[in-house]
Amino acid sequence: MRLLFLLLVLLSFGFAQKLVLVVSFPNPPRKLHLLLQSAQEVGLEVQGVYLRAEDLKSLQLPEADIYLVDTPPEEIRKALQEKLTGKRLVFLSPPTAGDPQVLSKLLPYYSSGGRENFKNMFKAFAGLPAGPPRELPAVGFYHPARGVMENLPQDFEKPLLVLFHRSDLVAENTAIVDSIIVQSEREGLPAVGFYYPETEGLRRHLHKLILEGRPLPSVVVNLRLMYFAYEEEKKAFEELALPVLQGITYRGRKEDWKKNPQGISVTSIPFHFTLPEYMGAIDPTVVGADQPLKEPLLHMVENLVKRAKAWRDLQSLENSQKKIAIVYYNYPPGERNILASNLNVIKSLELLLKTAKDRG
């Protein structure tokens, strides 16, 4: 009886229509998976397409009457608009175009995100009774055992802070974040996640991380890709004045990474190494893979957390107690050739050692 009622409702609202969901990078593939699952639980038949920028040259999309799209990169939005001229397109994120009636009905659910909201969104889309949107803060703290928190609870004293994308939280794609937090707590270092939207920089949210001029965390692990607001991130890292370790998510399967003698692809170097280094992040380490879903590499997570704890412990030492090794790059090679590609290594070492001595 319930299925018959659902069928009659869908037909009465014209949903013999074909629906296609289009989700693009940097959203995780898991988000599309969760959307499709939510639509199917409501009884809708939908198809899904996950896009990366490199897919645009040979872009093929299923035929549909309406396309629901989530694609932050402008180049992908423009390509879809050109490819689907004359079709009903609704851009849910960012909400830039589409049928205003459909957009106003779906956006409150979609912008909050999460399984329950997605399910109610598709109910509203199909004209079925739907509960109100369950709001998820745009920015907040996260812990696998305590959920989302708008502010850092007082019992998290000088924690390790894991920076990650809000879209991973929305898509229930936090396995790597969870693993880092759990491993950190095993090492005796409190840990908590901090999420914010992909297109925003950390600097506008520093008021949540700095109290009376002092940073609340002791060390930071960054899991975010920083190509949208990297200048803001750079300034934020400078103002925090804390060690920021760069965690890398391998684009592919864990097994492929283990077998790959190269490790990270050449095309990933700007996002995982160059930009983070420019912003002040150090010690880039692969901590997981993203296919089919994000999954941690436990031994690499353990290595990263131990180094993060060592950085935290250094902060409690007097400068006179710290032992520093200086490694310099010597090219062209030679015992008496301290050049580092013709840079003035001797002068740099002199300044570095003098500064270190002046600071104890």
Rank of each mutant, 00 (worst) to 15 (best):
M1D: 05
L4T: 07
L7M: 12
L8E: 14
L10W: 11
L11A: 13
F15L: 14
V22M: 07
V22I: 15
P26M: 04
P26V: 02
N27D: 08
H33W: 11
H33V: 05
L36S: 06
L36N: 11
Q37S: 15
E45R: 11
G48Y: 08
L51A: 00
R52I: 06
R52D: 08
A53E: 15
E54P: 00
E54M: 07
L56P: 01
L59D: 02
L61P: 01
D70F: 10
D70K: 11
D70T: 11
P73F: 06
E75S: 07
E75M: 06
R77S: 03
K78P: 00
L80Q: 05
T85L: 07
G86T: 07
K87V: 05
R88N: 11
L89H: 08
V90G: 03
T96L: 12
T96A: 10
D99E: 12
S104Y: 07
G114A: 09
N117G: 00
F118D: 02
K119P: 01
F122W: 10
A124W: 06
L128D: 01
E135T: 06
A138V: 11
M149L: 13
D155R: 08
E157Y: 08
E157V: 13
P159Y: 06
L161V: 03
L161R: 09
V162E: 05
V162A: 03
L163F: 12
R166M: 07
S167A: 14
A175I: 08
D178Q: 15
I181A: 01
S184W: 09
R186V: 10
E187H: 09
P190W: 05
V192H: 09
V192C: 02
G193Y: 13
E200Y: 09
E200T: 14
R203F: 04
R204G: 03
H207S: 13
I210S: 05
L211D: 13
R214L: 04
L225W: 09
M226E: 12
Y227E: 13
A229C: 14
Y230F: 12
E233P: 01
F237T: 03
E238Q: 15
E239T: 08
L242E: 02
I248H: 03
K254L: 13
K254C: 10
W257F: 15
W257K: 10
K258L: 10
Q262R: 10
G263M: 14
I264L: 15
I264H: 03
V266L: 07
I269D: 03
F271E: 11
L275W: 06
G280W: 12
A281M: 14
P284T: 06
P284G: 06
T285Q: 15
G288T: 05
L293D: 08
L293P: 01
L293H: 10
L298C: 00
M300R: 14
L304E: 04
K306H: 13
D313M: 09
D313E: 15
E318C: 04
N319D: 02
S320M: 03
K323V: 14
I324P: 02
A325D: 08
I326S: 02
N330V: 11
Y331C: 01
P333T: 11
R336W: 14
R336I: 02
L343F: 09
N344L: 06
I346V: 12
L349P: 04
L352A: 08
T355Q: 11
K357R: 15
D358Y: 04
G360S: 14
